[in-house]
């Protein structure tokens, strides 16, 4: 029994005290890992870049996302007749918008959109929103999925049956259709709701994955041992099962971020994203109406989506490879 306790309990005093030599060896380990999984390393670097951009966006964005750039218009005539304005639209306002400016100018690195707003600033702010939505929705889906997956897999029986049929019901419904339904019918699409709706839809899949891992872990001898010495279900679940299902949970979490970023972009593209926020999906949508005249807005925002999704997918992939002993080193 003492041996079992020794195996299962991690004493508080065992908290690591990192000495410099050990830190150096960790850095070496990271370098080794990066060399072994170059694609993963690229993914992590890209992910860090996206996260950094999101965190530092207030300092990086240069302009307010809604700042409209305009030029004084000497032709303005407030009393011009509509017929004259039809012939010369410059008569209608004391300024003209600097719309669709080309990229790579000192003032507008990525050009301006149809309303004369800086595309670079909007993409930077969009990154923050993408990360908030991606991480927020992943947290909700993974956290809730872990709880229900744990309960379902550990207790089995009717509890498992009930939870799994609910999961079946949600998964049987086309995900995007359900999402569109939620967003368009139940609530105005604000940021919080978008995050919660995406997280809710991911819950079912997280539950199923966690449950399957719990089923495997629950049958392990150390769980049997913990039960045999009289540990409560709660203690067994939290102290013995949960730590052993964390690896797939971390992987689901990291890969889901990219998927949620993509899902939010799709919602925004369809006009159902957060209405009052600058999002990449909305930018792709806004820019595509005049792709042949000004492709920049769609192009750059599309590229941002690609980079972010790729970054989180590659990083999640690499994490999976490292955490699964069967794939390690492949």
């Amino acid at each position: 029994m003492a041996r079992v306790q020794e195996v299962l309990r991690i004493p508080a005093e065992s908290a690591p005290v990192v000495d410099p030599r050990r830190r150096r060896s960790r850095l070496r380990k990271v370098a080794l890992l990066a060399r072994r999984n170059r694609l993963g390393a690229v993914g992590f670097a890209m992910m860090l870049f996206v996260l950094l951009v999101a965190v530092l966006s207030p300092w990086l964005q240069r302009y307010d996302t809604n700042q409209v750039f305009q030029t004084a218009n000497p032709e303005f005539n407030p009393t011009a007749s509509p017929l004259d304005i039809a012939r010369n639209p410059k008569l209608s306002a004391p300024f003209t918008l600097n719309r669709w400016e080309r990229p790579l100018t000192r003032q507008h690195w990525l050009g301006t959109d149809q309303f004369g707003r800086d595309i670079y600033a909007r993409i930077i702010v969009g990154a923050r929103l993408a990360v908030i939505i991606g991480i927020g929705a992943s947290l909700i889906s993974v956290a809730s999925g872990t709880v229900t997956g744990l309960i379902s897999g550990y207790f089995g029986g009717k509890t498992d049956l009930t939870i799994q049929r609910l999961v079946d019901a949600i998964q049987a419904f086309p995900g995007l259709v359900l999402l569109l339904l939620l967003v368009s019918v139940l609530e105005e699409p604000n940021l919080t709701f978008t995050v919660v709706a995406l997280g809710f839809l991911g819950w079912a899949a997280s539950t199923r994955i966690v449950r399957s891992t719990v089923l495997a872990v629950s049958a392990s001898p150390f769980v049997e041992a913990a039960r045999s010495y009289g540990a409560t279900d709660m203690r067994v679940m939290l102290r013995h099962v949960l730590p052993n299902v964390l690896a797939p949970v971390v992987v689901i979490f990291s890969i889901s971020i990219g998927i949620y970023i993509l899902a939010e972009a799709s919602l925004s593209f369809l006009g159902l994203g957060p209405a009052d926020q600058t999002t990449w999906g909305k930018m792709v949508n806004a820019g595509r109406n005049a792709l042949d005249l000004n492709p920049w807005e769609s192009l750059f925002s599309g590229a941002a989506i690609t980079i972010a999704v790729l970054a989180f997918n590659l990083a999640g992939d690499a994490l999976r490879d490292e955490m699964d002993p069967r794939l390690r080193g492949r």
Binding site: Q171, L201, A204, R208, I209, S212, V251, I255, I259, A263
Partner: peptide, 22 residues
């Protein structure tokens, strides 16, 4: 949900990153 197909596939067989990403 978009990831649904990947997740479902993983429970029937093994949870693989390829399946997930696919």
């Amino acid at each position: 949900m978009t990831e649904g197909a990947g997740y479902r596939g993983s429970t029937r067989g093994r949870f693989t990153r390829r399946g997930f990403v696919r």
